[in-house]
Amino acid sequence: MAAGALTTFGPAVPGDAARARALRLLLIAPVVVLIVVFLVLPYLNIVVMSIRVPSTRAPYAPGFTPDNYLRALTDSLYLGALARSLAIGAATAFFCLVLGYPVAYHLARTNARFKGLLFAAVLSPLLVGVVIRSYGWIIILANNGIINQTLRGLGWIDSPVRLMYNEFGVMLALVHVFLPFMILPLTGAIQSIDPNLEAAARSLGAPRWRVFTRIVLPLSMPGIQSGTILVFVLAVSAYVTPMLLGGGNVQTMATLVVQQLVDAFLWPVGAALALILSLAGACSVAIYARLTARTMRRLGP
């Protein structure tokens, strides 16, 4: 039968292509459902919540109002927290990049036998829950913690150095835990740079630092971009670490949101703050992506 014979040509037959497409859609369906049910719908709920009237006796009072936003955008407490959140995010991303790049380069280029061990070490911060990890830092950084006791034992200081309950402690802990999110994409990007390119640059007279700035750095841009964006987004929205290691002294947008929701029981205010943080983060990422777009374009399709 002619028609039957035709189907043996596989994907070229229209019916087959349609079936392949249906199968693809079926396979991505679970993730789409997850995102819609657990991300899109809750977000819409937050959007609606953010324009409701706050009440201390119920989640919200009847009616709608723009006041939550107006207050957040005019109050220096909230604006300061927003600026601090973005600054901590940017600084964490920057330090992760500076500290993570040499590690990523080494991981990408080494063929040592203990490479697997090195990867495990890089991932180790993620193996411990955030609360336990933060308490670990507290044991080290507190006024009577390991560092201060050691320094006092050596007689180098009289009164303890303040290492936590400030931005320093928060940033230190954030850089520690988010390093893997920088190192992994960077390693991938550097691995895809042909080592012969570096050899070629050197043969053309470029000393090592020129090889880095002219060849390796621009070619690893995709990794730098995804790593910094990941770390920035994670750091901006971090809550547990700023709360535990900031000890109330480091007010970020995330800690304020929880305060409004849990302590003050003002859900509409918390919702508005959360949305402002999301939008500000998204805008920052968009601006950053635009700034790095020129280098990325050169790398081509």
Partner: peptide, 28 residues
């Protein structure tokens, strides 16, 4: 070191800098 030997090298996979134009590769 390699960069001070003043040699021109051609690699099997050419090792052209992918983020530079032909002219920029030559100018490097």
């Amino acid at each position: 070191p390699a960069e001070k030997r003043d040699i021109g090298m051609v690699f099997q996979n050419y090792a052209l800098f992918p983020h530079m134009t032909v002219a920029e590769n030559l100018a490097f």
